[in-house]
């Protein structure tokens, strides 16, 4: 069971569904998750919403054999840092057989269940990644 408050997930759900982050028109930097202020330009920053294509590559990964509560029955599964083509890096589950994952592998986004709060609670959806060749 995953313990996330309904409100907390809902606040970020659009960003999780569609990889929506921010782009600073002042310095040209992209951010995911979205930021309220550009850490480089500070008060001079001009942030706007940006929808990432979701295409990117595997920077590094780990194969989870001993999982956190709620993920015990998905092992072994792959958790990786994905570098999006625009620059930002994020941690995500990769839907791939553990033997197939490689550093530098190109990936694309898929819409999957991220978890659920037991049988009675919310189901949390969002973005994971699969190899680009699929």
């Amino acid at each position: 069971m995953i313990f996330v408050s309904v409100a907390r997930f809902w606040r970020k759900q659009v960003h999780r569904y569609n990889l929506i982050g921010t782009y600073c028109k002042e310095c040209g930097e992209y951010y995911y998750p979205p930021r309220n202020m550009c850490p480089t330009c500070r008060r001079d920053g001009k942030l706007e919403s940006y929808k990432f294509s979701g295409n990117g590559e595997i920077v590094t990964y780990t194969i989870i054999h001993t999982a956190a509560e709620g993920f015990e029955h998905q092992t072994p599964y792959v958790l990786a840092i994905v570098k999006l083509d625009e620059g930002p890096r994020l941690t995500s589950q990769i839907v791939v057989e553990p033997g197939e994952i490689k550093i530098g592998m190109r990936v694309k986004p898929v819409f999957r269940k991220l978890g659920e709060s037991g049988n009675r609670g919310m189901i949390y959806y969002g973005t994971k990644f699969i190899p680009e060749y699929e």
Binding site: V95, K113, I123
Partner: peptide, 12 residues
């Protein structure tokens, strides 16, 4: 897959 259901399939 373990993380697929009607909603994820409908979205794809």
């Amino acid at each position: 897959d373990l993380d697929e259901d009607t909603a994820t399939i409908a979205v794809e």
